[in-house]
Design a protein around this nucleic acid. Structure first.
Length: 516
RNA sequence: GGGCGCGUAGCUCAAUGGCAGAGCAGCGGCCUUUUAAGCCGUUUGUUGAGGGUUCGAUCCCCUCCGCGCUCACCA
């Protein structure tokens, strides 16, 4: 049973009074002839002069929206309502409505209520497009007041928001209220939708087939992450929520689907941070007869396409923190840095001189006594450490970092003649990882060996071990075409392109702890 | 999980070891072109929860809950 606040009790009382007067506060149907924007456009069209010198016609409109501000002045009232496209002013006057109706509006209508208003478009003394209301009705009564805010328009035209809903917890927990009062939040999620649509259009136009693979899997794989575990009662079988799409999508290449992609949710039972949410949206594609260099080219084209179609520019501002602003340019080509060279340039260590973990560990602590790599780490993990400490922070402009150590890339194909290195790249921008791709391993015997190594050597953490996927190996044994694969976090791309510092700003309902 | 910080009215925020405040919102008035409308009056609190110290705690201490930053973790 809800506990009502003082403000809510007053509104509940109004609902009763309305019903007592025979007015339904939640009518079943609504009418609307124009959105706020359409009404303003129609007014401007009428003002700009009817064709062939006809007098400007009267613009009649029925609008619907939520009351966001009211200014009652006795015999007349101004209000702003907001719909999906913006705000528009209502003008209620006794001349058209009579004193009783104006008083009724002022007494019974509150901020947050949805209303429908019919009338004629006009301009006020200050020139603001306004609906002169001839009739109005309640569409939906709000019991709880929206988090109050007020917009002040300064003389230079900028809008200053007062008492806006800012608490990040409240905004995430009550996203509905956040969306209702913060138009920029709505805009972010429109952008996000447009980004995903743009990805689909690009891949569809390049001959890729969109597919759906299991989220609920008997075995997880394709990434190094702890899974969520669940149970199917009827089958009496433990199941996992997928941590990647990779192994299922590559099964499809075995089945002669040559270009496939999936956009969907991955689940990783890991920590939560400004760039990690337990569930996140991933894009993966696999492209038969291509290698990682071709995938690199396609990545540039795809991200460029997103920039062009959604934003109309390839230049973006990203505020890393209060004091750090990056101007990013996603124009082709991106910088390309070979990992060995990049590590040498930033840390002074040539990993090619150190083919064993022991040797590399010694080189790191000799050269950088302040650094604390894990003494028990495998060579690949130490290389990863060097990248994270020295190289990654320098990758501000969009950059492909390529040629990765084999032992942290169990699904990627080795470079011919270099058994320690695989054909793999990651795309970086603003210092963080955006995407990950490689020439996919298609040798079933090599793959089996990698699974064994991963289960045995890669980690002591039982949870992180790569489980052997026998069905995947069975698929590979039928023959898999050489191919290039790609994965990208859609949330992180959206963060970069919309200048949001936290993944929670681009997720409608981010994971939060239960409220008490 | 570790460290640091925050939690006060519907929203944004003050304040103090001694009656808990402002603006907005709300409620009652006045006001026929306002726009953070204005003017007069006025209501609203388990100060995140629990415990302790104290004559007295919103403030000091402890525990817990939630959030933020950060480190760890996170191909």
């Amino acid at each position: 049973m809800a506990e009502y606040t003082h403000l809510e009790k007053i509104r509940l009382q109004k609902i009763e009074e309305l019903r007592a007067e025979g007015i339904e506060p939640y009518p079943t149907r609504a009418e609307r002839s124009h959105t706020s924007r359409e009404a303003i456009v129609a007014l401007e069209a009428a003002e700009s002069g009817a064709p062939e010198g006809q007098p400007a016609g009267e613009v009649k409109a029925t609008l619907a929206g939520r009351i966001r501000a009211t200014r009652a002045m006795g015999k007349l009232t101004f209000a702003h309502i907001e719909d999906g496209e913006g705000k528009i002013q209502l003008f209620l006057r006794i001349n058209e409505l009579g004193q009783e109706q104006v008083d009724f509006f002022n007494k019974m209508f509150d901020l947050g209520d949805f209303v429908q208003a019919s009338g004629v478009m006009m301009r006020t003394r200050t020139g603001e497009p306004t609906l002169q209301v001839h009739s109005f009705r309640l569409l939906s009564k709000a019991v709880s007041p929206l988090p109050a805010d007020k917009d002040e328009t300064l003389e230079n035209g900028t809008v200053l928001r007062h008492a806006a809903l800012e608490d990040p917890e409240l905004r995430a927990r009550q996203r509905y209220a956040d969306l209702a009062v913060n138009p920029d939040v709505r805009e972010t999620f429109r952008k996000r939708a447009a980004i995903i649509k743009s990805i689909r259009n690009f891949l569809d136009d390049n001959g890729f087939l969109e597919v759906e693979t299991p989220i609920l899997q008997p075995l997880y794989g394709g990434a190094a992450a702890r899974p969520f575990t669940t149970h199917h009662n009827e089958l009496d079988q433990d199941m996992y929520l997928r941590i990647s799409f990779e192994l299922y999508l590559k099964r499809l290449l075995v089945g002669n689907l040559e270009r496939v992609y999936e956009i969907g949710r991955d689940f990783r039972n890991e920590g939560v941070s400004f760039k990690h949410n337990p569930e996140f949206t991933q894009l993966e594609f696999y492209w038969a007869y291509a290698d990682y260099l071709q995938v690199m080219d396609l990545t540039e084209q795809m991200v460029g396409h997103i920039c062009d179609t959604v934003f109309g520019t390839r230049k973006f501002t990203f505020d890393k923190d209060e004091n750090t602003r990056y101007e990013l340019d996603f124009s082709s080509p991106w910088k390309r840095i070979q990992m060995r060279q990049g590590i040498l340039d930033t840390s002074g260590i040539d990993i090619a001189d150190h083919p064993t973990a022991e040797s590399l560990f010694k080189a790191i602590v000799d050269k950088h006594p302040d650094q604390k790599p894990d003494p028990g780490a495998a060579r690949g993990k130490l290389i990863d450490f060097l990248v994270g400490e020295f190289l990654e922070p320098t990758l501000i402009q969009p950059t492909f970092l390529y040629d990765y150590p084999r032992d942290i890339s169990p699904l990627a194909k080795s470079i011919p003649g270099d058994p320690l290195t695989v054909e793999r790249f990651e795309g970086y921008a603003a210092g963080f990882e955006l995407c990950n791709a490689f020439t996919e391993l298609n040798d079933p015997l090599d793959q089996e060996q990698r699974f064994i190594e991963m289960g045995r050597d890669y980690t002591d953490d039982e949870e992180e071990k790569h489980p052997m996927d026998d069905d995947y190996l069975r698929a590979m044994r039928y023959g898999m075409p050489p191919n290039g694969g790609f994965g990208m976090g859609v949330d992180r791309l959206t963060m970069l392109l919309t200048n949001k510092r936290s993944i929670r700003e681009v997720l409608l309902f981010p994971a939060l702890r239960n409220e008490e």
